[in-house]
Nucleic acid binder design. Structure first.
Lengths: 208, 208
DNA sequence: AAGTCAATCCCATAAATGGGTGATTTTTAA
DNA sequence: TTAAAAATCACCCATTTATGGGATTGACTT
């Protein structure tokens, strides 16, 4: 039984959502709130698995709401509920801790599907949001490894060390002899000031 | 017209994919490669919009392939192509710059749909991968290493492995014999599904 | 033309590691 | 209170790694 809480200021919508959830098998609406005023104590009482949160709440926005929920409850997943496919807002909500979002124009089926998907570890969202998330996630630190001045070959090999390859596998991968692999790794160790594969891997991952 | 390049070692599959793409309206296969050997020059000639990349290529893996492509071509989007729904690998590929993935068992329609979706700015991927990306992006994945159920001792030792200590040093540090260290490490390997210190360190750092 | 550096290779040896099997004691959980 | 899990230790064997040395080729710089 998936326990869901709703935070939505529009009374009509909130009520029909509550009905929908309670009529759906395996689902139960354990709280139905018009705003975030007492959200922490309300959720503490009702102990939902999932909160369906309107993103455009008056006064305190749903994005703040996500933050509040996530700070106080580790195990509650938040699904944003919004009228517009507003990438910016949704993106912010996800940064704040939401795991997905749902358009208000969605059909009853889509709504319950999204809730189930979220409950099962998914992340219901549109393609464009997904791409946005992925991008901001990819553009990470400009390699702190470069300070060590590894050559191209050395960098390649260091990457592969992180993958856990042995000298033999490395040799096969790059079509060179184990001796050469050894030499390269010697140089890598010198440059990184380490003395084992494990240390090199650790340093490689901590930097770039 | 969406120009697609394919990198796939299985000849049969590669050929039928090529056919599929060429038979699909608005799509064209401009390169069909069995490996990554000359991928940079090949792609420079064919100038695809999208690369469909097998994740499990022999020798140089598709994950490296993504890195290579992304380093050399800003505007090419990479779609991973994989047999298994292997979260770890796919996640790595996305970190490396892929924008989505596709299962090999997908229907022709699903394949072309995913390509179109990618071309239009989407990010075709499964719910569980999406969630994983979101989590690592929220930088607060509470799960992390704990999913492996390491004991207190095993966790201590794993931390020290990351520091680069040898078995001998570990034994001295914890006032126990090297044999015991070995045993603990064996258990750690079993639980993490790895077979070397380097792999364990990599996994430890990638998770918690 | 001389020098540097990356990349390639080889030899040899000692230490460290990974895999397997088996055992005892203490702690924890059912 | 019994069973399971954790922590401890030992032995064997094959492979891998680390470390030391030395060497050649080609590309690029000066």
């Amino acid at each position: 039984m998936i326990k869901v809480a709703i935070v939505e200021d529009n009374n009509t919508l909130r009520n029909s959502l509550t009905k929908l959830l309670n009529q759906t098998e395996g689902m139960q609406c354990v709280a139905s709130l018009p705003n975030l005023l007492n959200v922490v104590s309300d959720l503490r009482k009702s102990q939902p698995d999932i909160v369906l949160m309107d993103i455009g709440l008056p006064n305190i926005s749903g994005i703040e709401g996500v933050r509040t929920v996530k700070e106080n409850f580790d195990n509650i997943q938040v699904l944003m509920f919004t009228v517009f496919d507003d990438d910016e807002k949704i993106f912010e909500a996800i940064q704040a801790g939401a795991c997905g979002y749902l358009l208000k124009k969605s059909s009853p089926e889509e709504i319950t599907d999204a809730i189930v998907s979220l409950y099962q570890g998914g992340a219901p969202m549109s393609a464009s949001i997904a791409r946005k998330v992925i991008h901001s996630f990819q553009q990470s630190s400009p390699s702190g490894l470069s300070e060590y001045q590894l050559t191209t070959r050395e960098n390649e090999i260091l990457y592969s060390l992180v993958e856990g390859l042995s000298y033999k596998k490395l040799a096969e991968k790059y079509f060179i002899s184990i001796s050469t692999i050894r030499t390269h790794i010697k140089h890598i160790y010198e440059k990184l000031h380490v003395h084992s594969k494990a240390q090199a891997v650790a340093k490689a991952l901590k930097k770039g």
